[in-house]
Structures are given as C-alpha cells and as structure tokens.
Write a protein that binds this DNA or RNA. Sequence first.
DNA 1: TACTTATTGTTCATTGACATAACAATCATG
DNA 2: CATGATTGTTATGTCAATGAACAATAAGTA
Lengths: 163, 163
Amino acid sequence: MNRKAQAAKAETPKQTDMLLRQFIGYNMKRAYLQVQEDMARTLEPLGLRVGTFSALAVIMGSPGISQTQLSEVLNIKRSGVVVVVDDLERAGAVERKPVRTDRRAYALHVTQEGSQLWKRAEAAVQAHEAALFTDLEAPEQRALQELLVRAARSAKHTREAGK
Amino acid sequence: MNRKAQAAKAETPKQTDMLLRQFIGYNMKRAYLQVQEDMARTLEPLGLRVGTFSALAVIMGSPGISQTQLSEVLNIKRSGVVVVVDDLERAGAVERKPVRTDRRAYALHVTQEGSQLWKRAEAAVQAHEAALFTDLEAPEQRALQELLVRAARSAKHTREAGK
DNA sequence: TACTTATTGTTCATTGACATAACAATCATG
DNA sequence: CATGATTGTTATGTCAATGAACAATAAGTA
C-alpha cells in the first residue's frame, strides 16, 4: 500500500453514509449481508446453503409437507423449491414420498441421515450466531429477535392493506 | 380455489418454521426481504433502485468522493460501482469530474438536478418507512436501529478477528 | 533517472438466487 | 363428464453482484 492510501486509511473514518443511517432499511441491509455471508460459510462444510438449510428445517418441523406448502413457508416460488429439494434429495437428506390421496403431490420427509445432518447444522449455526453476536447481551439478542419479527409483520400488514 | 385448498388456508397456520425462528439470521432475512421489496417500489417512480439511491446519498454526503472510496462505503466491488454511477450519470444526477492530482480517478459530484432528486427520494423513503413501521413505537424503532447497527458491528468484528 | 509495483476505473464473462411462462398429469366441481 | 384448478417440472430470463483481465496512470525503489 502506498503512502496516500495509508494516509486515507489512517484518517478518522468520516461517516460518509450519514444520510443513509437514518433508514431502518439501510441498517437492516448492512446487518443482513454481514450475517448472511458468514452463515453461508458456516454451512458450506456441511454441504448446505442457506436455502437448503431452511428447507431442511421446515421439513423437519412439518414431516409430509408438500412442495407447494414449502414454497409458501419459505416465500419462494414452486419452481424454486424443486431445485432445493433436488439438492437435499441428492444429498440423501430428504425423500419425496408419494401421497396416496393425490398422485400429483409429494410428501417430503427427512431421512435418518438428514436428521443427523440437521442436528449438526443446527448446532453449527447456533454456535456461529453465539460467536457472531458476542457484543450483544442475551436480553438484547432477544429484543432484536422480537423487533425483527414485529417489523416484518408490520411491513407485511401495511403492504397487504395498501394493496 | 377448491375445497381442499380453502380448508388448508382456514386452518390455524401451524408454525412450520419453528426450528428457524430461533435464529437471528432467519428473522433478519424475513424482515429485510419485506422491507427491501417495498423500498424498491417506492423508489421506482423516481427512477432509482436501492443501489443507486444509496450511492446518491453517499455522494451527497461526501462530495468529490472517488469510485473506489464509494465501493468501500457501499461494500461492493469497484466494478459494481461503475454501473451504478453510469446509471446516475445517465439520469443527470451526478457527474464524474476529473481530479487534478490524479488523472486516473474521478471526483463524484451531485448535480443541481441530482440534489433535488435526492430531496424527493429522501422524503419518499422517510414517508414509506413511517408507514411501514406503524406497528412499532418511535422508541422501538430507535431500539431496532441501534441493535441492527451493533449487530452488524459485532458480526464484522468477529469475522475480522477470526480471519 | 529507469523500472518495478500499486492503484483507478473499466469491460466482459460468470455466478446465484430468484421469477415467469409454459407444460403434462392429476384432481375437483358443476 | 366436461371444464377449470392445482402440483410438480422444465426452460428461460432477470437482476445484482463477483472475478479476472486490461490500459492508463501514479508511487516507490535501485
């Protein structure tokens, strides 16, 4: 690094994004991107991406769920679910079982192997978040959780009302 | 909609993402996606996207900033800044002025027109967020802001330490 | 000075995570 | 049973961002 660059780095980092910090959306994006990137790195050794991790969690919690239902929970389209489930099935973590009452649909189930994978992944992400948010006390983390949930709900409300 | 689908919708929405709600990252993603989508819609009539809006804000707050510096503030690569600035320049909102002391670099400045565009955009997003978060009291919004900032900082710290 | 390394902005190809549109198979309903 | 809806799927496109290479220029060094 040359002198000019060093000097620039050394300067008190003038808050050049002052005009943006007033917005919740901006701060949310910054925080989200930080967390998301690390999450991906945490899951990679387990052969999971954030999307497949989430899908695995939902199928764990709702055995027999259909792909359409899964798409609603995850807020993605049915066509997007296909590749996610393909991925999990290829990894041997979930299987598509036929539904007796509807030959179009599949009932998604987590395999033994998938169940163990989930346990490892859950523990990994828990440990990861604990490390990531060491600067926040436990009650603060809970407060953040609750505010995020309520913010999402409020936003959803407003949008659906003003539709 | 047929009977089966109606019945499914009517059921108490079983929390099928329970296993995910424990994670800050998941709640952050949900909230972020809600907000981000609406933000884009708010800015669209003004000819701005979230990326160009942010860039405009930073250039407003730091006249003469270079593209490399801008890329650092916005956390994107220099090659990504090019298209953003191209966009803003095409819209007549900013201009690339030559730097006397360095013929490689540009000093970015907001034009008169861009300044007025910023005022309108800032007001629009302020109004939008006010409407979006009506379910949160003002102190709660401030708390969320602060927690988001600290969460991002904590995450950044941890990452840089464990690098 | 010469020359070697760094930095700036740029282009182009690629990626990832989605969405959209069309489709066959199957189901529901009047 | 005839018509319309729904399920999963494929193919295709989009959008934001990245990475690698590049010419022009600047800074550091022998």
